[in-house]
Nucleic acid binder design. Structure first.
Length: 1027
RNA sequence: GGGCGAAUAGCUCAAUUGGUUAGAGCACCACGUUUACACCGUGGGGGUUAGGGGUUCGAGUCCCUUUUCGCCUACCA
């Protein structure tokens, strides 16, 4: 044993060494990726985390998977660039900072003003960016930090300006009055993607609108229903279907068809709809026909609570099969009504201020918040008997994802990007395979979303973001706008492509400036042009990420070399928001797709299948896991769980700060400020602790015991390495003759070659869990449990020692490389120590290995080492071992007692396995007395039937007859069951005639093997019963 | 309403194109400190693959259907 190795502790002290290792990598520039045309590039851009807050476990998974690819490819000789950075995350970040401002200082953004608020947000950004990058580094992420970008930094700003200018010049940017999802709390429009729907309890109000001057025989009023009565202040019409007879008939036909196709279970529901329809034809239809005629005659209604006259219009949006068949039209606050207004040339009346109160168009209700106005209006209508009835109803209500407040549909000026061509290009890229999505099923969502080709609203009424680079001026007369346009077109800046101009009908001039230019801006201002206040949607800048981070629009060498990037690894919820937009922007700006492959990884859910989030209290900070289990365990644990087919459930625990017991997190305790430890009965605080007394309790980290497997594996690897190093004294690199190695050496090299092949191919196919499993099984079962155990006696043998040292060192060396991408710290730590004991140890090369495992070449796959025959033979040995151990255990024979056994087998098998007797001795405590075709079995024995062999363990001194009988009986019943199955199959005429020959042959052989084992077991039982 | 996915041991997950007795880890039981590791070793118990049909010589795997759950998506006044 080597004295030096006594210094190696029996645990990997990650807390002490991880930072040191990481810093060395940094210091030696191991993460740096520089253009080198003699090598191939491999590039990943990080999905830039939002600077809204710290990273959670989902980020840890996302970034671990990226780092694995980067480290693997770096070892395989690519110039592996991992581009890091963060996202300014527009609304999300401004909302967080504004909320804090309100909480801490009770101020709004208007109290501070634009510049001051933006300053505050920058402070927040600095703080969280630092924290986020720190988290990534503690996870071991090997990003090229020299290149760290931020979506709001100057390089990105330049890309944004250039892109915006280009789209503007191509006529793909326009401003229009559109309905937007208005977040009255944040006072900004949010995109459809930032909206979620929630079912809330509400009411369904039936209102009566009287006709101005009804003729005899005509109805005096129409009834309309709504869940939002306050919008009536903005009504500009009531609609009825132009041809209710035809519409109802059509509806009936559709229902009939549906009835035909429906299952028996669904039919009654459809039938009752048909019955209702029939009744409606009698009761409501005549009235609707009359109303349609009145609409054509241009009859007017009097809008209650206002003195406005509104028309009854005929439009197909009104469905005769629903409600009263009439519908109120509020174009400025409902997307469908807006369409109706466009079709029928109706005025659009906005009744809301940006802060969500009723504006001057609301008559006596002015100044009231929408919700209050609703109550007042219902009251007022009821008072004049125009409220027909009120029903309770559940309503699907849109909410802003950022402020969690209800959305008000609202008509506003918005900037849009025309998506027709851009979307098509991004669809084509996936359809034609330029971008491949894994797993492939996610491609359909991508294509469906793009297929709608909805124009992209890119303006946000925020202060945090890239301000839209457009200066505008509106005129009364179109002619004035035209003359300003001519003036601008005559400017020299336009002819050299620094500015461009467009007209928004009827009389607004927009000028776009290509890049930051104070002089030019002053010049425009002197022409009366004013800059747009809005900033761009945060996804506008992240859409440029793959090329903007590489220097675009400059034609940098990096851009040329690293673009298109290789792989994008992200989560499924931003396939449309981010992935699709990167593809179309990449195609627009670069003419090439931004990446060749996209891998969508699973989501991490808590033990109840719910998504993790800080606001629920079930979130996990990767640093908590790292502190408890270490960075390698975090990474391996996540990799181990990253299967392709489904999301991962991860039960979460509090770690008691008093006794370190893990206390299950439940739906109940996860929202409490204090939790009692099950074990030590002391209480600890959680993220919710606010009062002084609660905060006085120590806070519990939130972790998951799912990481124990991985932590144990790290320890196993550490100790196996420790064992190898302890036994490397006197190590000399040794040339080996592969074809004449002992069976066990051939076997482990065959396993090693196989696992190397598996790991690299699985990682490249994004089958991370399979890769982790393959290398885990190899290291634990094959290397530790078998090979190392077999090495123990050989190391004592001066003749065998040198060879086994060489194989051990080689296997350890390879294992460290194989595991490095997943577990970088522990492998690097061992690598450094191994160098002291075995400076050169590669079986295939005399040159010393690299100083760092991170820079070591990936192990070559030696196909010639893969020997299925050897692995098969070796499995006989493992079978014998297992069988003897089982008997030992069943017979309750202590480990110190030595057993004897003999084996019946053919000479070839004997030749092969007899040398393994030493190992059976050392690993099962049993000595072979004979290997022959007809051995003399001990008088009292336990028989083990194995393929092509019979093993008889001498039990003369140990027999526990009852135990042995029960072992045999269990074996027998198992065998009988299998034999019945096989016989049944082989006696089945159609199986024999239809199944492939090789399957039948396999079954026959298996059957005869089973039968002979059954006979042996039966005889053994008979014999035992006589004792 | 539409679409996608999932349901396998107490728990978390596997299982190539359909082909022996459905596998791991954790947890559980028994035994055990033996030249690395108790974060360990050896052995064991534990499954009607959600229910019901079908195709097939053969189904966890393919088809139909029911149930439950998750995600995306939609205009029901």
């Amino acid at each position: 044993m080597n004295a030096e190795t006594h210094e190696i502790p029996n645990r990997f002290d990650f807390a002490a060494s991880a930072t040191e290792i990481y810093d060395s990598w940094l210091k030696h520039g191991c993460f740096n990726a520089d253009v080198d045309k003699s090598k191939k590039p491999f590039t990943i851009v990080i999905p830039p985390p939002n600077v809204t807050g710290a990273l959670h476990l989902g980020h840890a998974l996302n970034n671990t998977l990226q780092d694995i690819q980067i480290r693997l490819h770096r070892m395989q000789g690519y110039v592996a660039l991992w581009m890091p950075g963060t996202d300014h995350a527009g609304i999300a970040t401004q909302a967080v900072v504004e909320r804090r401002l309100k909480e801490v200082e009770n101020k709004t953004r208007h109290d501070l003003g634009r510049d001051k608020l933006v300053e505050r947000i920058w402070e927040w950004k600095e703080q969280y960016e630092k924290r986020i990058l720190g988290q990534l580094q503690r996870m071991g992420c090997s990003c090229d930090w020299r290149r760290t970008r931020f979506t709001l930094d100057e390089m990105c700003a330049k890309a944004v300006r250039t892109t915006f200018f280009d789209l503007f010049s191509k006529g793909l940017i326009y401003r229009g009055k559109r309905l937007v999802n208005w977040d009255a709390y944040l006072q900004t429009a949010v995109s459809d993607d930032e909206v979620f729907t929630e079912t809330v309890k509400g009411n369904f109000f039936h209102l009566r609108y009287p006709f101005d001057s009804p003729q005899p025989g005509e109805p005096t009023f129409v009834t309309v229903a709504t869940t939002r009565p306050e919008t009536m202040l903005g009504d500009t019409a009531v609609a009825v279907h132009p041809d209710p007879v035809a519409a109802l008939d059509k509806h009936e036909r559709l229902l009939q068809e549906k009835l035909q196709a429906a299952t028996a279970k669904d039919q009654p529901a459809i039938q009752s709809q048909l019955d209702e329809l029939a009744a409606r034809k009698v009761e409501v239809l005549p009235q609707l026909v009359l109303l349609a005629q009145m609409a054509r005659d241009g009859r007017k209604l009097r809008l209650p609570l206002t003195d406005r006259e509104i028309p009854l219009v005929a439009d197909v949006w009104a469905k005769p099969e629903l409600g009263s068949g009439c519908v109120k039209i509020t174009p400025a606050h409902d997307p469908n009504d807006y369409e109706v207004a466009l079709r029928c040339s109706l005025p659009m009346i906005n009744i809301m201020n940006p802060d969500g109160t009723i504006n001057e168009n609301g008559g006596s209700f002015v100044g009231l918040p929408m919700a209050k106005a609703r109550l007042k209006i219902v009251e007022a209508l009821d008072a004049i008997e125009l409220l027909e009835k009120t029903e309770d109803r559940e309503i699907e209500l849109k909410h802003s994802d950022r402020s969690k407040t209800p959305i008000e549909p609202y008509l506003a000026d918005q900037w849009f990007v025309r998506m027709e061509q851009l979307a098509q290009s991004a669809m084509d890229a996936v359809t034609n395979g330029d971008v491949k999505i894994f797993p492939p099923r996610y491609a359909s969502g991508y294509l469906d979303w793009l297929g709608e080709k909805r124009d992209w609203p890119v303006g946000r009424q925020l202060w945090w973001g890239h301000q839209i680079p457009i200066w505008s001026r509106s005129f009364e007369l179109p002619a004035d706008a035209q003359s300003l346009k001519f003036k601008i077109e005559a400017m020299p800046e336009l002819s050299v492509g620094l500015i461009n101009v467009s007209i928004e009908e009827p009389s607004t001039v927009h000028v776009c400036i290509r890049s930051e230019d104070a002089g030019l801006e002053t010049k425009l201002q002197s022409l009366g042009l004013v800059r747009q206040a809005d900033v761009l949607d945060t996804w506008f800048s992240s859409a440029l990420w793959p090329h903007s981070t590489l220097g675009w629009p400059e034609q940098t060498p990096e851009l040329e070399y690293f673009y298109p990037t290789s792989t994008l690894i992200t989560s499924r919820d931003i396939i449309t928001l981010w992935v699709a937009r990167m593809v179309l922007m990449g195609l627009n700006n670069m003419g090439k797709v931004p990446f060749q492959e996209v891998f969508i990884h699973p989501k991490i859910l808590d033990g109840y299948g719910e998504t993790m989030s800080k606001s629920k209290g079930n979130g996990v900070d990767p640093l908590d896991v790292i502190n408890k289990f270490g960075p390698d365990a975090l990474r391996f644990g996540l990799t181990w769980l990253c299967t392709e087919t489904q999301d991962v459930r991860m039960p979460v625990q509090f770690e008691c700060p008093h006794c370190e017991a893990l206390v299950n997190q439940t739906k109940d305790n996860r929202s409490k400020p204090l939790v009692l430890c099950d074990k030590c009965k002391k209480s600890f605080s959680t993220q919710w602790a606010e009062t002084e007394s609660d905060k006085a309790q120590p806070k519990a980290p939130v972790v998951s015991e799912r990481f124990e497997v991985a932590r144990n594996f790290v320890n196993k690897l550490w100790n196996a390495s420790r064992f190898v190093m302890m036994n490397l004294e006197g190590f000399q690199p040794t040339k080996v003759d592969f074809d004449n190695l002992p069976l066990e050496d051939q076997w482990i090299l065959s396993r090693l070659a196989t696992v190397t092949k598996t790991v690299q191919s699985e990682i490249k196919l994004f089958r991370y869990a399979e890769a982790a499993r393959a290398v885990y099984d190899f290291a634990w079962d094959h290397f530790c449990s078998l090979y190392v155990e077999m090495a123990k006696p050989r190391l004592q043998d001066p003749v065998a020692r040198q060879l086994v040292q060489q194989i051990l060192a080689h296997c350890l060396d390879s294992m460290l490389r194989l595991l490095h991408p997943i577990m970088p710290f522990v492998t690097e730590s061992i690598w450094q120590q191994l160098a002291r004991f075995a400076p050169t140890r590669d079986l295939h090369s005399d040159t010393p290995p690299s100083q760092w495992v991170i820079l070591a070449p990936w192990p070559a796959v030696h196909d010639e080492h893969i020997r299925p025959k050897v692995e098969k033979q070796f499995s006989h040995f493992v079978d014998i071992l297992g069988a003897i151990r089982e008997i030992r255990s069943r017979q309750n024979i202590g480990p110190k007692e030595s057993l004897k056994f003999c084996v019946r087998c053919e000479p070839a098998m004997k030749q092969l396995l007899a040398p393994m007797a030493t190992f059976i001795e050392s690993m099962a405590g049993a000595t072979a007395t004979e290997w022959s075709t007809s051995p003399t079995a001990p008088s009292i024995n336990a028989h083990i039937g194995i393929e092509q062999m019979d093993v008889y363990v001498d039990l003369t001194q140990f027999i526990d007859v009852a135990a042995e009988i029960s072992r045999n009986e269990k074996l027998l019943s198992n065998l009988v069951k299998q034999i019945q199955g096989k016989e049944g199959r082989l006696n089945n005429e159609s199986f024999v005639s239809r199944a492939p020959a090789d399957i039948i042959e396999k079954e026959r052989q298996a059957l005869s093997e089973l039968v002979s084992q059954r006979d042996a077991a039966e005889q053994a039982i008979l014999k035992l019963k006589k004792l």
